[in-house]
Simulated assay, not measured.
Amino acid sequence: MDYTKCFKEVILKYSFIDPIVEFIRHNENITYKVTEKGSEDTYLLRMHKPITKNMQGVQNTREGIHSELQYLLAWSSHSELPVQIPVPNLNGELVTKVAIESEEVNCSVLKWIAGETMSKIDFTNEEMVSALGKRIAYLHQFSRSYKHGSSFIRPNYEIEWINNILTKFRSGKKIGIITTKEFKILEHTFSLVTDRMKGLSKGSETWGFIHADIHYSNLISTTRGISFIDFGLSGFGYYAMDVASAALFTKSELRDDLLSGYTNIISRKIDIAHLEDLMFLEICGLYVFRVSREDMHIWIREHIPSLIELCESLLKGKTVFYNINQVGLAN
Rank of each mutant, 00 (worst) to 15 (best):
Y3V: 07
F7C: 02
K8Q: 11
K8L: 09
E9R: 01
E9P: 04
L12Q: 08
K13E: 06
Y14E: 01
Y14C: 01
S15Y: 00
S15M: 00
E22C: 00
H26S: 03
N29C: 04
T31W: 12
Y32E: 07
V34P: 00
D41L: 14
D41M: 09
D41V: 02
L45V: 06
M47T: 08
P50T: 04
I51T: 06
M55Q: 10
Q59R: 15
R62G: 04
E63M: 04
E63P: 01
G64Q: 10
S67A: 14
L69E: 11
Y71R: 10
L72Q: 02
L72I: 01
L73V: 01
W75C: 02
S77E: 11
H78Q: 14
E80K: 05
P82E: 02
P86R: 09
P86E: 11
P88D: 09
E93P: 00
V95K: 02
A99V: 12
E104S: 13
V105G: 03
C107Y: 11
V109N: 07
K111M: 12
K111Q: 13
I113A: 09
I113C: 05
A114S: 12
T117N: 01
K120L: 14
I121L: 15
I121W: 14
I121K: 15
F123A: 03
N125V: 14
E126Q: 14
L132S: 12
L132A: 13
G133I: 07
K134N: 08
K134G: 09
R135G: 02
I136K: 11
K147C: 09
H148M: 08
R154Y: 08
R154W: 07
N156H: 13
I162T: 05
N164R: 15
N164G: 06
N164D: 15
I165H: 06
R170W: 06
G172K: 10
K173Y: 06
K174G: 00
I175H: 08
G176Q: 08
G176L: 10
I178Q: 10
T179I: 04
T180C: 04
K181A: 10
F183H: 06
K184I: 08
H188G: 01
T189M: 13
L192D: 08
T194W: 11
T194F: 09
G203I: 05
E205C: 01
W207I: 05
F209G: 03
H211R: 08
N218C: 03
I220S: 01
S221F: 09
S221Y: 09
D230Y: 10
F231L: 04
G232P: 00
G232T: 03
L233G: 00
G235W: 09
F236Q: 08
A240F: 01
A244W: 06
A246C: 07
L248G: 03
R255V: 02
D256C: 07
S260L: 15
S260H: 14
G261Y: 13
T263E: 14
N264W: 12
R268N: 09
I270F: 06
A273Y: 06
L275D: 11
Y287P: 00
Y287N: 05
Y287V: 02
F289K: 02
V291A: 02
R293F: 09
H297T: 02
I298N: 04
H303V: 00
E309V: 01
L314K: 11
G317V: 06
F321P: 03
N323W: 15
I324G: 00
I324H: 03
N325H: 15
V327L: 15
A330E: 13
A330K: 15
N331F: 08
